[in-house]
Design a protein around this nucleic acid. Structure first.
Lengths: 185, 185
DNA sequence: GTCTATAGCTGGATAGAC
DNA sequence: GTCTATCCAGCTATAGAC
């Protein structure tokens, strides 16, 4: 893997675990195992790394959703697949929250130029969920349902991160799935 | 108002609007209108200011909930009062997110010693909501319901902050209130 | 492409005069 | 209680050798 990709990967993880503001060039360089000087050959400013990280996350998200679209047979199963992210990643979420939600929140407070790019990741999920609900026969309020599922995952992620209680995420996910099943006609 | 109180008030606002990590002593001192040197007469470290801010928020929260307990006639109306916070504060939330959620998330990433204190604010809301649902006759799952309402407000706050769409918060709040009304026997 | 060295700035924190 | 002056560490960013 090229140095540039290694930098993006390390920055991606550190931004998630420590936050963008907190993460320094030095710590990224140290993680990758290169000097700070070399760093600037690949990225001129910290904002450039952020852009690359957000771009990578966007691509990863699109790829993941494409796999889910192909892999799950019914739209309801696809929505379930989304909802179960918080279960699969619950260990990380307990420590660092949702990568998408915490990043958009931080960039909003910093009034950062890349804020819109971070929100785009939310938008990709929202569009994909809307499609699933449309296929499910709820075209009229598909976007509303998409936002509800997104809000659910954000709420659960925030509280799981705050309280760190065993079983909480799974319990809430099961309840939402039960509610969602009543949408299947 | 004493200088110390002014510092806490300014820090409280800046921590909310910019985040803890981003906010510098200089900016707090400038907001209050004192020198950096004077600052250290009142607080020895940045962590001490954070503790004072969190303590103030905790007191404010308790006081607000006590007013609501007295002011609203029924437990359902009290829960509504809570849910409507996101409507009343929607302008701030669009800009900076929920003060409680974003603070706990940031302190979690920073692995900050005061993280538990920030979570206590969530806990005060949770306990108060649980009491309301208990009074409402749902003692068996009062804590679950409290967490659901909390998660709702966090999810809506995060998405409102991300998308900034007019009408979104009000619409979601109305929907939750409708759902909650079915709990009233 | 990668390194060392270093500039220039801002952060938190201290000392001491008033 | 409030100020000015100052220290030192850490940060982003640059220059130039290899």
């Amino acid at each position: 893997m090229g140095t540039r990709e290694q930098i993006v990967e390390a920055a991606n993880r550190l931004f998630y675990q420590q936050g963008y503001e907190r993460t320094s060039f030095a710590s990224i360089a140290e993680t990758v195992g290169i000097s700070r000087g070399n760093f600037y050959y690949h990225f001129k400013t910290k904002d450039e790394i952020l852009e690359a990280v957000l771009e990578a996350r966007l691509q990863d998200t699109r790829a993941m959703l494409a796999r889910w679209t192909e892999g799950a047979a019914t739209p309801l199963k696809r929505v379930f697949r989304f909802v179960e992210i918080v279960v699969a990643n619950r260990a990380d979420i307990e420590h660092y929250g949702c990568p998408v939600g915490t990043m958009t929140s931080e960039l909003a407070k910093l009034d950062h130029p890349s804020r819109a790019q971070a929100v785009d990741i939310f938008r990709v999920f929202r569009d994909w969920l809307r499609e699933q609900f449309t296929e499910l026969g709820h075209a009229a309020n598909a976007d509303d349902l998409a936002l509800q599922v997104l809000a659910f995952s954000q709420g659960v992620a925030t509280l799981s991160n705050a309280f760190g209680e065993r079983g909480y995420v799974k319990r809430e996910v099961e309840r939402l799935k039960t509610r969602l099943m009543s949408l299947d006609t």
